[in-house]
Amino acid sequence: MQASFLFNHGHHSIFTAILNGLSIGSVYAIFALGYTLVFSILGIINFAHGAIFTLGAYFSYTLTGGAFGFNGLLANASLPIHLPFLFALVLGSILAGIASVIVERLAFRPLRKRGADPLLTLVSSLGAAVVIVNVIQYLVGSEIYTFPSDIYGRLPASINFGTVERPIAIRTVQIVIFSVSALIVSILTYFINFTRFGKALQAVSEDAITASLLGINTEKFITFTFFLSGFLAGLAGTLVGSSVSIAGPYFGIAFGLKGLGVIVLGGLGNIPGAVLGGLVIGLAEAFVPADYSGYKEAIAFALLFMMLLVRPQGLLGRSVIQKV
């Protein structure tokens, strides 16, 4: 079966599919890392994460000097600056991180102080997502925005990985996305496992009360986690936006739901799991035959669904025994 599969596709298209899968999968991974970091510390799903993703994309677009369309309060407005893409990416993501901290203060902290059911926080984060998406729509309308084509400077539009006779062209965007994501995952892995701060973060996620008794400022870590989570969402949003386009204020919601598939697949709150889940779903989507491309959007949810039924703790998660 494997052989006929290879035969049907031909070698170079397999190679292209793998690279495309890794590229989109790595974006899923950094997006899902943001989800899973918050879950590992607070045991809640932040549904505003997809909205922050959108927000980050719009921030970066604005910072590169992109103008807005004809609708909304900010019609035809644009910043007088034209930041290079990499600066816009970082700054836009920082702004997304700040937005995420604001969401935490307004929609999460009051409930946490009250010791409310985690499900209530879920609903409150849904409300925050509705607010963010509609504020964007109110300000800049629901047009599709495309980043300028020259954001990568003098880099060619695509790079040939094959020979002259049998070219395997990969879009430069894909390579940039994969490189940035791989870099972020590496930095984050180092940061969480080998720094004092990262170890404290792990301690908070393992047992918040004990961590605070041992002198760790839990609230500070929660704030930082939300910043980091928003930053990662902003990065993912900008990368996806620059690869395709910003498809209106709602474009992060669908992505956010797919991100649920990623974190459930890897194990809720499990950091290596989010990376694995992202790559698995990215690759699975890349191998959908063109005739069935319409069903591509369902793959993440089908995997999520099966995972929940077979192994709710995810690929890399450990099961929790519930006691009375």
Partner: peptide, 14 residues
């Protein structure tokens, strides 16, 4: 309108 709607959801939980 939908901004108000979202705020209502947040406020009703908070």
């Amino acid at each position: 309108r939908l901004i108000i709607f979202g705020l209502l959801i947040v406020m009703s939980t908070v």
